[in-house]
């Protein structure tokens, strides 16, 4: 059975895929069928974030219940393997987020519609979270 932090990392990955997948399914088809200022995306973005956070909270509660014994064990909070996974995951996620922020900045500098900058930041942040989670999970599996 995976530990508490490994379980919550899986939850983040799953929540990201669900929330981002739903958002892209709702917004991307509109890009090809209507002008940018008529695309409905702001409320979808908020709903997507709410779905992500709700999925995350539910999974953290589930993981906490499943790992009660581990969490009760004194001194386990500082498990070094968790730290290694966190460090690697955050480094890769950070690179992805920096790339998304840079692209969004360029879109604003060259005066593209704010739709593109906002969506680059949103999708970039979600993908950065997903990359971070996947690297952590690979580290837990001993593949990185």
């Amino acid at each position: 059975m995976p530990g508490f932090l490994e379980s919550t990392t899986r939850a983040v990955a799953l929540g990201t895929v669900l929330a981002l997948g739903w958002y892209l399914l709702r917004v991307v088809p509109q890009i090809f069928n209507q002008p940018l200022d008529e695309i409905s995306w702001k409320i979808e973005m908020v709903i997507s974030l709410v779905v992500f956070i709700a999925t995350l909270i539910a999974d953290i509660i589930r993981a906490a219940i499943a790992n009660r014994g581990e969490l009760d064990q004194a001194g386990v909070v500082d498990d070094e393997r968790d730290h290694v996974a966190e460090r690697r995951g955050d480094a890769w996620g950070g690179h992805a987020m920096h790339a998304a922020a840079f692209i969004a900045l360029m879109l604003l500098v060259f005066e593209f519609d704010p739709f593109w900058a906002a969506n680059t930041l949103f999708v970039g942040a979600m993908l950065a979270g997903l990359v971070s989670s996947l690297v952590k999970l690979l580290t837990y599996r001993g593949s990185v």
């Binding site: 386990v76 498990d79 070094e80 968790d82 599996r141 001993g142």
Partner: peptide
């Protein structure tokens, strides 16, 4: 063993299986 060292049981399993190299301290 995990309790005595201060890591999770999953970390001991990973070390035993050769999937994780522990720090010198551990």
């Amino acid at each position: 063993l995990a309790r005595q060292i201060g890591v999770t049981r999953q970390t001991i399993i990973a070390i035993e299986q050769g999937k994780y190299s522990p720090s010198l301290e551990v």
